[in-house]
Structures are given as C-alpha cells and as structure tokens.
C-alpha cells in the first residue's frame, strides 16, 4: 500500500494484556524508550508481555531487495505472539512493516503467510494504541516546554501516526508544540539508503535538522527510532543543542514531572 492511507481500521476494546515488540533499534540504541512504552501501557492497567526471543521485523532486508534474508528474520518473530493479544510497537515504520508489508513479504510462502497475516493484523503503533485503543488521558506534571514532533514517512503516510502523536502532545498542558517547515518531508534516513546514497541522505538530514532548529524547540519528539538515530546523529555532528527523544520517554517524563 504505497499510494496513501489504507482504509480506516476498527479498534478493539482496551485489553488486559498486550505484547510489546521493542524493535532492533530500541533494543541496542534506546532501551529507555522501550521501557517507557511498557510503563505507559501499564499505567493503563494493561499487563505487558515482552517475548525475550524477539529481534527485528525484517525491514532492512525487505527494503534493500533481500526478501529471502528478510523472511528468515521476520519468520523468527511469528511464533512469539501465540495469545490473541495486541502487539504494540513503539516505532511507526516497524509497525507498518509488520502490519502492511509482511503479507507481501510472505506472499509466496504458504507455510508462514497465515501467521504473518494473523500477527500483522494485531500490530499497533504505540501512539495509535494509546489514543485509539486505550483512550489515554495524560496527567501532565512537567514544566513549560516547547517541543517539535517528527513522524516517520511511512508511519505518517500509511498509518496517520502524526495525528496520534500530536494528539498525545496536545494533552500535555505545559507543552507547546512548534510547527516545522516542510513537516512531512523525509529526514533522509531510509534504512540502508543512508549509507548507499550518503550524499543525498546527508543533504536531506541537514535540511531537516535546520528546519527543526529553526522552530526554537527545546526538544524534538518522535515515535520513530530510526529517524531519531539519523536526526540526532546529524544534530550532534552539527554541534546543535537540540536533541530528539522518543515520544514514550518524553511522555513518561511528563507524567513523572521529569521532562
């Protein structure tokens, strides 16, 4: 589905249990975001189950033209979610991979296709889940902060998660959300694109960093760990004071009066 939003999905009632799929990027580079996501879900009275064998959704191989390699990785996740609970993913592009692209990845693999579809249908991006399934009400205890939101392209275009991210920030009374120029434009990450087309990727990342800095925001918030790696790396190299934080970490900090 790369021509715009799929038809609106219907959301289940708030469950007692969910699985958390932490993603490979959070596992190695930003575990705090994963732990914060679990805490936000638990605040809703939900038990969070984290299958320890999980690794990666397979997106890097899939988007680089290595479907066999991607299938092997994705297939290793399919048996980790046996109960009919929702699978919450604190990263828009990984959630999109599982929900929208697994069926294509396994289209010619009858052994795994049913499971890929069944799990994929239960996948929710974190902010989408908090807003549409939990009906979260945030009790903001943080001070006055100006923040700017960045949403990954696929998450925005395939799942509309910029809206749910914005909705959660809007619940924080002390948070002023700044608007960046060309908000919908890609930050230049694109997985292996960042190293296979380094000049173009760097130019895109530099423009994104500039647009974010120009808002005067104190914090950049995003529900997408891949974009954050790229944007934070670029901001740091530029010597910028601005840094990005995963939205789960940021929101939990607001509730606890830290961020």
């Amino acid at each position: 589905m790369s021509t715009g939003m799929p038809p609106p999905r219907s959301y289940p009632a708030k469950p007692a249990d969910v699985y958390l799929f932490g993603t490979c990027v959070l596992d190695l580079f930003d575990p705090e975001a994963g732990v914060s996501a679990a805490a936000l879900l638990e605040r809703e009275g939900i038990r969070v189950h984290y299958p320890p064998e999980q690794t990666c959704c397979g997106q890097p191989g899939y988007t680089s033209g290595f479907p066999e390699e991607a299938r092997r990785v994705a297939a290793a996740q399919l048996s980790l979610f046996p109960e009919p609970w929702p699978v919450v993913v604190p990263s828009g592009s990984c959630a999109g991979m599982m929900r929208l692209n697994w069926p294509a990845l396994f289209a010619d693999d009858p052994q795994h296709l049913p499971a890929a579809r069944a799990v994929g249908e239960r996948v929710f991006e974190l902010t989408e889940f908090l807003v549409h399934v939990c009906g979260t009400r945030l009790d903001d205890r943080g001070g006055s902060r100006k923040v700017v939101l960045h949403t990954s392209c696929t998450a925005r275009r395939e799942m509309g998660t910029h809206l749910t991210g914005r909705a959660l920030l809007a619940q924080c009374a002390g948070v002023e959300t700044a608007q960046q120029a060309r908000e919908a434009e890609c930050c230049g990450f694109g997985g292996t694109f960042s190293v296979r087309q380094p000049d173009i990727s760097a130019a895109m990342a530099a423009d994104k960093a500039e647009a974010l800095e120009a808002t005067g925001a104190e914090v950049l918030v995003s529900a997408d760990a891949g974009c954050l790696l790229n944007i934070n790396g670029t901001l740091e190299k530029r010597g910028s004071r601005l840094r990005g934080q995963h939205i789960a970490t940021f929101l939990l900090g607001r509730l606890e009066g830290r961020s």
């Binding site: 958390l20 932490g22 959070l26 596992d27 190695l28 580079f29 930003d30 575990p31 705090e32 994963g34 732990v35 679990a38 984290y50 320890p52 999980q54 960042s194 190293v195 380094p198 990727s201 760097a202 990342a205 530099a206 790696l229 790229n230 934070n232 790396g233 670029t234 740091e236 190299k237």
Partner: peptide, 25 residues
C-alpha cells in the same frame, strides 16, 4: 563508521539492551 559518520555522530550502543531491562522488570 563509514558513510554514516561523514555527516553524523557515530552510533553507540546502550549500556544494556531493552531485552535485558525488560527481563529485570
């Protein structure tokens, strides 16, 4: 780190993985 660090600070893993931290909880 190759082309990545031409325009970005290097990637550095966290002290402990999310998997480990979730197991602790």
């Amino acid at each position: 780190q190759g082309a990545w660090t031409d325009s970005r600070a290097p990637l550095k893993p966290a002290a402990r993985t999310l998997g480990e931290r979730m197991a602790d909880r």
